[in-house]
Simulated assay, not measured.
Amino acid sequence: MDRKAAFILLLNELNITLSEKQLDQFIKYYEMLIEKNEVMNLTAITEYDEVLQKHFIDSLSLIKVYDTNKVVKVLDLGTGAGFPGIPLKIAFPSLEIVLLDSLNKRVNFLNDVIRKLELQNITAIHGRAEEYGKDKNYREQFDLCVSRAVAKLSTLTEYCIPYVKVQGYFISFKAGNIQTELEESKKAIDILGGCIDKIDKFKLPDSDMERTLIKIKKIKTTPNSYPRSAGKPSKEPIM
């Protein structure tokens, strides 16, 4: 089976149809990812089939809990190699996306991807979540914040909710058993102005890999004291 056919089979499981151009963009993205991964650590997952499933399809699974056909402004916080932001942009071009990462080398790679795939209305910026979260140009400016970053939900909540407009959403991508994390994050979610709207547990198509999408609605403005200074949300999460 060729690369496109393998991808189309998985996309069918999510009821997503892509054009030839979009499929080509995904394949080009994969090739750039693997090439750059030889000189800097972007991903431990490099086999094509695994990247399709664990990065591309996992990123696109957002459609299970959010209408991606809306023209909305999205922040992908701690984007790393561009997940979920770049797959979402390729598949749903109407989304306006900002990719934020703390490592400049990764941001340079993302800007290269954006340029070579000729993606519009998507930018990659370098910095810490705590700093941009205080910047009036970013604070409470997004309809949606997404994150696949590896951090506890109580910490991610403090990083992400300040960026979201009231009535907007923060969606966290999680793997494994997240019940303890959910319990420990309740206070942080409430203090930061959110409430849990939906929790969707599922298995990635054609696999036994369990995923959970935690959808948090922002119902009130985040207090000005959050996010706290650099390092505090991870070292001293709100509990």
Rank of each mutant, 00 (worst) to 15 (best):
R3T: 09
R3A: 10
R3G: 05
K4V: 14
K4L: 00
A5R: 13
A5I: 11
F7W: 06
I8M: 02
I8H: 04
L9V: 12
N15L: 01
I16F: 02
L18T: 03
E20P: 05
Q22H: 02
Q22T: 00
D24T: 14
Q25H: 03
F26A: 09
F26T: 10
I27M: 05
M32S: 04
M32N: 05
I34V: 14
E35D: 15
E35F: 15
K36I: 08
K36D: 04
N37F: 04
E38S: 13
A44Y: 00
D49R: 13
E50F: 00
E50T: 07
V51R: 04
L52H: 04
I57K: 02
L60Q: 06
S61L: 03
I63H: 02
Y66Q: 14
T68Q: 01
N69T: 15
V71I: 13
L75W: 08
T79C: 02
G80T: 02
I86N: 01
A91T: 08
F92I: 06
F92G: 02
I97R: 14
S102D: 01
K105I: 12
R106H: 03
F109P: 07
N111I: 02
D112K: 15
D112R: 12
R115Y: 14
L119S: 00
I122M: 05
I125N: 12
H126M: 12
E130I: 10
E131W: 03
K134R: 15
D135R: 01
K136W: 00
E140M: 01
D143E: 11
D143I: 02
R148I: 13
A149V: 09
V150D: 11
A151H: 04
L156V: 09
T157L: 03
E158C: 08
Y163C: 00
K165N: 12
V166W: 07
Q167G: 07
Q167L: 13
Y169A: 05
K174N: 08
K174H: 11
K174W: 14
K174Q: 13
A175I: 01
G176P: 01
N177V: 01
Q179M: 10
E181R: 04
S185Y: 01
K187M: 11
A188K: 06
D190H: 13
I191D: 04
G193K: 05
G194Y: 07
I196D: 13
K198G: 01
I199A: 07
D200W: 08
D206M: 14
E210N: 13
L213D: 13
K215Q: 15
I216M: 06
K217A: 10
K217H: 12
I219A: 03
N224D: 15
G231Y: 09
S234D: 08
K235P: 03
M239N: 14
